[in-house]
């Protein structure tokens, strides 16, 4: 379970995350939504200890991430598409990650097979397409067989086959009792794979509910409609009308 309590992050005068509180329970896929710049990535980076909160706390299974003895075996993280050095092969990238925890080479081969990267495992990551980079990121997140997964835009850039694969994967992981926190802008996709959604705008919580609760309370009757109504006042970057 992920617990975020009164989490705040300021960069000088800008407040990126503003007193955010929510939980992502185990055994469920929690969708994490919000317009561009709403603070989703910043929140995820604070949960895994990459950024220090200005105030508030974030814990995984009751402990701050940085205090976990074996973080990769507790939490699988995929935050950036380009998380591997372009000059290193996919296999080397995963092996370096595995070595920090004494995870055996055989597990590296396993996650490579699981994510369908066998054919390109010994190619340099700089030659990868967006979708292959996503698969490599997911492979890294699965290395330690963790009970919690934090995935930032995991289906971005995947082909339809890959989208279906991620959907099945996160459903299966949640069914096994794991915690999955997943951000996405693809509402149709989230409606299919998320049990609950946390919606934020301008760093603040806008909604924290199950998908049926959110959809039933909306006129349009879809997650997309519900999302657009919730975030109507919180969109910072909006395109103009085409004339």
């Amino acid at each position: 379970m992920i617990s975020v309590t009164a989490l705040t992050k300021r960069y000088g005068p800008t407040t990126a995350v503003d007193g955010l509180t929510f939980t992502a329970p185990s055994g469920a896929v929690t969708g994490f939504l919000g317009p561009n710049g709403a603070g989703k990535s910043t929140t995820m980076r604070m949960i895994v200890g990459l950024e220090r909160p200005t105030s508030g706390t974030a814990t995984v299974d009751g402990r701050p991430y940085a205090e976990l003895a074996a973080p990769l075996r507790t939490v699988g993280v995929m935050l950036d598409v380009r998380s591997a050095h372009p000059g290193r092969t996919a296999f080397r990238h995963l092996l370096a990650q595995a070595r920090t925890h004494g995870i055996p080479r055989s597990r590296v081969d396993e996650v490579i097979a699981l994510t369908g990267l066998e054919a390109v495992a010994h190619r340099r990551a700089g030659t990868f397409s967006l979708g292959m980079g996503q698969r490599l990121g997911i492979a890294g997140a699965l290395l330690g067989d963790p009970g919690t997964l934090i995935l930032d835009e995991p289906v971005n850039g995947l082909d339809p086959d890959g989208v279906l694969w991620v959907r099945d994967l996160v459903r299966r992981l949640a069914a096994e009792g794991r915690t999955v926190l997943l951000s996405s802008h693809l509402m149709h996709e989230l409606a299919l794979c998320a049990d609950r959604v946390v919606v934020i705008g301008q760093g603040r919580l806008l909604a924290d509910a199950t998908v049926p609760e959110l959809v039933d309370g909306t006129e349009g009757g879809s997650l997309e409609e519900a999302y657009l109504q919730l975030t109507a006042g919180a969109v910072q970057y909006r395109g103009g009308d085409v004339r």
């Binding site: 200890g49 990459l50 976990l68 990769l72 935050l79 950036d80 998380s83 925890h101 890294g140």
Partner: peptide, 13 residues
């Protein structure tokens, strides 16, 4: 190269 994210999520200390 953006790999600091990978490195420091593995070793958050």
């Amino acid at each position: 190269a953006g790999t600091a994210t990978t490195t420091f999520t593995a070793v958050p200390r």
